[in-house]
Write a protein that binds this DNA or RNA. Sequence first.
DNA 1: AACTAAACGAGACGGTACGTCCTGTCTTACG
DNA 2: CGTAAGACAGGACGTACCGTCTCGTTTAGTT
Lengths: 205, 205, 205, 205
Amino acid sequence: MPSRPPASRPSGRPRSAAADTAILEATRAALVDLGWSRLTLGDVATRAGVAKTTLYRRWAGKNELVVDAVAVLFDELELPDRGSLAADVEGVVRQFAAILDRPETKTALMAVVAEATRDAPLRERIRTSIVERQKRLVVEGRARAAARGELPDEPDAGAAGRAADLIFDVVAGAVVHRTLVSGQPADAEWARAFTRLLLDGLAGV
Amino acid sequence: MPSRPPASRPSGRPRSAAADTAILEATRAALVDLGWSRLTLGDVATRAGVAKTTLYRRWAGKNELVVDAVAVLFDELELPDRGSLAADVEGVVRQFAAILDRPETKTALMAVVAEATRDAPLRERIRTSIVERQKRLVVEGRARAAARGELPDEPDAGAAGRAADLIFDVVAGAVVHRTLVSGQPADAEWARAFTRLLLDGLAGV
Amino acid sequence: MPSRPPASRPSGRPRSAAADTAILEATRAALVDLGWSRLTLGDVATRAGVAKTTLYRRWAGKNELVVDAVAVLFDELELPDRGSLAADVEGVVRQFAAILDRPETKTALMAVVAEATRDAPLRERIRTSIVERQKRLVVEGRARAAARGELPDEPDAGAAGRAADLIFDVVAGAVVHRTLVSGQPADAEWARAFTRLLLDGLAGV
Amino acid sequence: MPSRPPASRPSGRPRSAAADTAILEATRAALVDLGWSRLTLGDVATRAGVAKTTLYRRWAGKNELVVDAVAVLFDELELPDRGSLAADVEGVVRQFAAILDRPETKTALMAVVAEATRDAPLRERIRTSIVERQKRLVVEGRARAAARGELPDEPDAGAAGRAADLIFDVVAGAVVHRTLVSGQPADAEWARAFTRLLLDGLAGV
DNA sequence: AACTAAACGAGACGGTACGTCCTGTCTTACG
DNA sequence: CGTAAGACAGGACGTACCGTCTCGTTTAGTT
């Protein structure tokens, strides 16, 4: 994920692959220890046993580095068939909450989102590295629910996409807001209540 | 909102009230111009025509100052009776989206939330200054809907509180996620679709 | 000697005089320990117990700092009446050689002269801080010799100035070249031989 | 002059002779453009169209390289018979002044001398590459003057050597000090005045 | 009207991190 | 094995802010 030079002819000494992974691991460790705002690239470099130049050769700055360091954590999310739409939703909500409960994601996610409000390339990086990548869960879940007959098929691809976007924003937004803004745990009880609301709507609560 | 000294004997020159408002205005202006991360307290002081000491006498640091400067913007939210629960929800969603579209809130809100993940007093300040203060909208809206017969009464106060919390996280989280994380506009069409989902649930979409 | 801001109204906290002297002393100590090329301003600041900013607020860079730190050492030169022109010359030559034998002058003098070849303000600083200030020795010595009848009076002030310049360049240049370029000690024997050459010329050797 | 490896078996690809001269020329060009302190070996390598490794294989560092690059310039000095000792001295002084007026010598000579104060091998390199090599001029000039009967013969070789050292330091030192420390031109008038002083001594001025 | 005590502007202070530059070494592929 | 290319660890650079401090100067409310 670090920016590569034009992939023409690799002349000179090649970049160390070990450095890449060491830097990303060091970044996550530093996030845990220091949080986003007190994390410094000099410290990350030291932790990784790497010179600052090596780090700056690969990433433009703190934001880009942190996005890459954190993005991979969201790939843990999976959607095993739990038998019903409600169980699937509840399951993924609790997985997502668990990831957001980690100190490295907690401190980093909102920070890079904040930075991204004034930095379009960073916004794009977040979108492709995190948002779009996890949207698969919604698509998969809806397909499974449709196969079970719990939801109607959606023949219009455009409408299906918009619906997936909406659902993703609602689910992810609710969990993020609960844990990071309201500062309350998204525990089992909350996941159940949220799932009921999502499936049945306000009237059903 | 700036921290006052123990209100014992006000001896010596009193603090300038003009300085307070000048500082908060300068903070919002600096947020617009520079964004959160490039805002510096020295610059805010200069813009406000105030010495740095004056600023630090009132606020502990950047985070506290920014929370105070931004919190007031959310007080613009109101809930006029638009005739139906759906119209009320859609209205408040669009108001909230409009506030989040301002450059000063956009850049500041997620930044202070990120800082708050490692700073309990700041978390509390956000909760009381912003979150709890706006939760009134949910309570009011539900009461009105109950009066209209659109929603059942909720006799249990505890359950009502939990439901309000949940709904607030879902609504606010969805709008925040849509605009700041996904980076898409929460426009009229989206507000309508979100309202339908919130009221009728997934099955109804 | 550090550059002062326009001496109008001293507003704000005044500069620490202690910092000035601590920095200059630290500079000389660092020159002794490290030599000119390995001296770093960060290290000088640390030795002086001062922040780098404090140092840069007063001096534009390494060269200016070192000139000021070293210039004062040349003020030790004096010209007591030793009874004859030859004795006076020999005395001042040996004093000058002793100063140039110190590690801090040895490493610093030629270095700043080298830098000055591409930096007119620095050249001027060296001229006024060191060269012109010590030229007094030549003027004084010649006056004394004239009083003794060893040298003719020089009625033309312009010619006297040019002669003083020439003599100064010859004396200082010879000692500097002997010690720093040829790398030989300007000891008593050499001082005597040089004095004889200066007074009597090549023919007399 | 670049350090050669033990002259055993020249196995493998031989070193490029063209590289040596290209590097020395590039060094002189860089000295003219940048001066000593801003000259970097990376830049010299680039100018010479050579890799840094090639450069480091031949010279230990900046100082050694610069001494070699500059030393050759002093070989231009010659001592044609100008008919009298005075004319010979004045001629060589003006030649030497002309060489010191070049930007590459001006900036480099004092810099390497300064470095040499803390680096014995470098000091030796300067002595053999520059100082001792040019001392021939003094020896030759004195011999010619003796042949003309302007100076007495010096039968004692040791004394002759010491006298040559002294004269060299006086002449070279005066020109260097005049041009680089005092920052004044060693022009024709100055050369004439200096020559008179050197030949006749202070009393004769 | 004079005194007192805190707030005020200005800006220097000791620090920390920045992102860049250069050094001297190394690791590739090529000749 | 020499070479061009360029990545590497290390370390200094000069700048920007931080949050604190020390000045001299207001500005209220006592005395």
